[in-house]
Design a protein around this nucleic acid. Structure first.
Length: 270
DNA sequence: TTTTTTTTTGACCTTACATCA
DNA sequence: GTTGATGTAAGGTCAAAAAAA
C-alpha cells in the first residue's frame, strides 16, 4: 500500500522573501521510460523500485541537463496546446487511461499487477515531490532543457514536470492572493477603527471649542507633526506608538503610510 | 472500524501572448 | 507587414487519492 503523504504544502507569509527566482503529444507507444531501462525487472515491486530510484537520485542536480538528452525524450516534450491533445479530439478518459498506464510503467508497476485498476491517478513519491519543490525554489519556471533534465532525473515525462510546475505556480499564486487578502482585511479593520476614533476625537474637540474657558485650559489631546517634504503626518517627538493599532484617547495616533503598502510586508511583485 | 466530508493534487482545457520562419 | 506554427503562462475545472471528521 502506498501512503506517502508529506506536508509539502504551500507556506506563504506576509514577509517571505523572493526566492523564486514548460511535445509532441504523449507518445503513448513510448512506454519505456529511463526507469524501465534502469530497472528492467518486470516483477519488481513498486516499493523496491522507488527505493532504488531514490538511491539513484541522490546527488543529482535536477537543473543540470544530462549529457545526452535523447531524441525520444525530446520528441516527448509537449505543450498544453500540443496539437494532438487539443485537436485530435481524444476523450479525456481515454487519455487518462493511457497516461496512467504509462505512469505506472514508469514507476515500475506492471500492467498485469494493476489489472483493472489501471485508471489510478499517479501520485508523485515523496522524493519526487521534494526534488520538484527544490527545483521550484530555484526557478519557478523551467526552460525546455531544464524540464527535460528534471523529467529524466525523476523518471517522469516532461509533460508531467510541466504540469507540476504549472499547478505549483497557480497554487502559489492563489495562496499568496489569500495572504494578501487577509492582510488587506486587517489593514481595513485598523483603518476603520482609527477612523472611528478620530471622528470621536473631532467631536470632542468641537464640543470643547464651544466652551472656550475649558478649551484654553486643555492641553492638546493630539500632537501631530507634519513632514514638510512628504506631507505625511508623523509621530510626535515622544511617541512610542507605531503601526495602525488603535491607541487610547489623548495619545498621539500615527500611521505612517508607505507608498507601497506591500513593500515591507509582502514579497515584491514583478 | 467504517462511512462521509473535505482537502490535496495531477491532469487537462482554453485563451492570450510571444517568437520565429 | 502578414500569416501560420509552435511554445508557454495563466486561469479555470475535473476527479482520484488522501486526510480529517
Amino acid at each position: 500500500m502506498m501512503v506517502e503523504k508529506e506536508d509539502l504544502g504551500l507556506s506563504l507569509s506576509l514577509s517571505f522573501p523572493e526566492n523564486n527566482k514548460k511535445s509532441s503529444p504523449f507518445n503513448l507507444m513510448h512506454k519505456n521510460s529511463w526507469t524501465d531501462s534502469l530497472f528492467p525487472s518486470s516483477d519488481r515491486s513498486s516499493e523496491t523500485c522507488r527505493v532504488e530510484t531514490r538511491t539513484f537520485l541522490k546527488g543529482i542536480d535536477v537543473n543540470r541537463l544530462p549529457e545526452t538528452a535523447d531524441a525520444d525524450e525530446e520528441a516527448g516534450v509537449s505543450s498544453p496546446n500540443s496539437t494532438i491533445s487539443s485537436v485530435s479530439g481524444n476523450k479525456r478518459s481515454e487519455r487518462e487511461a493511457n497516461n496512467c498506464e504509462e505512469n505506472e510503467t514508469s514507476r515500475g508497476i506492471s500492467d498485469e499487477e494493476d489489472g483493472e485498476t489501471s485508471k489510478k491517478k499517479l501520485r508523485l513519491s515523496k522524493d519526487q515531490s521534494a526534488i520538484l519543490e527544490e527545483s521550484f525554489k530555484e526557478h519557478n519556471t523551467l526552460n525546455p532543457k531544464q524540464k527535460l533534465a528534471l523529467a529524466k532525473s525523476l523518471g517522469l515525462r516532461p509533460r508531467q514536470v510541466e504540469v507540476w510546475f504549472q499547478n505549483r505556480r497557480a497554487r502559489t499564486k492563489l495562496k499568496q492572493t489569500e495572504v494578501d487578502c487577509e492582510f488587506l482585511k486587517r489593514w481595513y479593520e485598523n483603518l476603520t477603527e482609527e477612523n472611528r476614533r478620530l471622528h470621536k476625537e473631532v467631536q470632542e474637540l468641537r464640543a470643547l471649542k464651544l466652551s472656550p474657558q475649558l478649551y484654553m485650559q486643555m492641553t492638546p489631546p493630539t500632537t501631530l507633526t507634519m513632514c514638510p517634504s512628504c506631507e505625511r503626518v508623523g509621530p510626535p517627538p515622544n511617541s512610542s506608538s507605531s503601526g495602525p493599532t488603535p491607541t487610547p484617547m489623548g495619545q498621539a495616533q500615527t500611521r505612517p503610510m508607505p507608498f507601497n503598502i506591500w513593500a515591507n510586508t509582502l514579497h515584491p511583485r514583478s
